[in-house]
């Protein structure tokens, strides 16, 4: 019975959550209130684990929720329930796009969409830099600049160019450097 509920809930999340992996969070909170699978307090813990383990955040969150609620089989079912509806939907959309790919309307549509996507990505960068370094609040207009984090960012940028823009190596080196600095209490 719990398997059925899990699958049903995660199909719903797959079809109604917007804004990527973090968009699934409101649903995860809803589930905590609806069923007593886990407490609201445990969610922060789950979020941290989903964020630091490899893989897409939303998928990790589903896998972990399933595991916590109903073991390995639960993890398997929630993962599939989250991705299969998305897959069918994407294939459908892809076919429509193919069919009209030469129309002017479709070209305009994609050009518009790409410009918006750049804007969204820029906002993500701004938000992350602000959250880690500047701590600026729009409401109070107060800033709390963190020079150590800023220095860490500069070092990470240098590392990125030093390893010729290799993404996994940049992540590993930055992580190693961060753990080192944290261990010695520098950051």
């Amino acid at each position: 019975m719990i398997y059925f509920q899990l699958v049903y809930e995660f199909i719903k999340i797959s079809l109604f959550s917007f804004g990527g992996g973090y968009g699934t969070l409101p649903f995860i909170y809803y589930l905590a209130n609806q069923y007593s699978w886990y407490s609201v307090k445990e969610i922060m813990h789950m979020v941290a684990i989903a964020a630091i383990t490899p893989g897409a955040f939303g998928v990790n969150m589903a896998t972990y929720t399933g595991f916590k609620t109903a073991g390995v089989i639960g993890a398997f079912l929630t993962t599939l329930a989250l991705i299969i509806p998305s897959m069918l939907l994407s294939i459908g959309i892809y076919k429509i796009l193919r069919k009209y790919k030469d129309s002017i309307f479709m070209k305009d549509f994609l050009e518009t969409l790409r410009a918006i996507a750049s804007g969204l990505l820029f906002v993500v960068v701004l938000q992350m830099i602000n959250q880690e370094i500047f701590h600026f609040e729009l409401k109070t207009m107060k800033m709390n600049f963190d020079p150590k984090a800023f220095l860490f960012l500069i070092i990470s940028i240098l590392l990125y160019f030093l390893v010729k823009k290799n993404i996994p190596v940049t992540m590993l080196l930055t992580l190693a450097f961060g753990i080192f600095m944290k261990y010695y209490g520098i950051i």
Partner: peptide, 19 residues
């Protein structure tokens, strides 16, 4: 977990470069 969270800085660099 707080140790591993330092990876956020690398994420900023990579997303910035991709932007």
């Amino acid at each position: 977990l707080s140790y591993i969270n330092t990876i956020t800085i690398a994420v900023i660099v990579l997303v910035g470069a991709s932007f």
